[in-house]
Design a protein around this nucleic acid. Sequence first.
DNA 1: TAAATTACCTACCGTGTCAATAGGCAATTA
DNA 2: TAATTGCCTATTGACACGGTAGGTAATTTA
Lengths: 142, 142
Amino acid sequence: MMISTRGRYALRVLIDVAEHEKDGYVPMKEVAERQGISLKYLERIVPVLVKSGIVGSIPGKGGGYKLLKAPEDLSLGSILRLTEGDLAPVACLECGAAPCEREYECRTYPLWVEFYRVINEFFDGKTLADVIRTDPADNYSI
Amino acid sequence: MMISTRGRYALRVLIDVAEHEKDGYVPMKEVAERQGISLKYLERIVPVLVKSGIVGSIPGKGGGYKLLKAPEDLSLGSILRLTEGDLAPVACLECGAAPCEREYECRTYPLWVEFYRVINEFFDGKTLADVIRTDPADNYSI
DNA sequence: TAAATTACCTACCGTGTCAATAGGCAATTA
DNA sequence: TAATTGCCTATTGACACGGTAGGTAATTTA
């Protein structure tokens, strides 16, 4: 398994915020309830979204979160890389990993590099706008 | 990280066997030395390749392993699924996982399904023949 | 001003998986 | 007799995952 709850929950949070921000700032408490995710756990995931400038936050009563970018301009790749660190499918491609000394003789290394590229291109080719639904009537349709 | 040493080592074992089986049955001890992998660890990975009929084995002196299929007929997908269990990128798609009760309302579920398909198609579209080298002179080239 | 609400931070923890390591024994073959 | 596969058990250290807990700071509303 490759994409942990951090990345999956971050995505669901952003989708939830995007679908409810017409009501104003969206408090994380509401997101947690709607998504069935522990609020405390979300409180550890969301700050990175704020720091990166994806969402803005306002404290106090009536506060919450709001998207700072249009869903069309927010690639899923950037969200997942932010929360997962990277999307490397194997250890030798991970950010900060020591370069493998077998790299140049390894038959499989080019395979992983190509796969890594496919992964990034898949998620970079999709945006938040592709996964949200604006019409509430569609909520339970396929 | 998604593909563990089990799958990566299995692939390297099969590549090594494919590249050396012209000398007869290839003992795992030699594979372990060439690949720089613990023999003991390989002994826990290889049996599944034998049981599935990918390689044949002969015990005793002069024994070892040999491919039972042509490299062109051996997809990397089948090898990896065999050793990794499955290539599911998220928990809710893993073999044997309880079906997610949010499946039909989840905005991200179709995304994971599509990604899962991309992964399988990537590895099913490649065979062992695509990653081995038959000319020893190419061993250290790019 | 006071209460409520929310964001934000640090620390901790139980569970499980990963990646080996170690040792041994039986069967088979050159 | 040496080499090799095949199979088994047990152990271990490191680490990530998923989550819990409690507290602090900032802001807004009443």
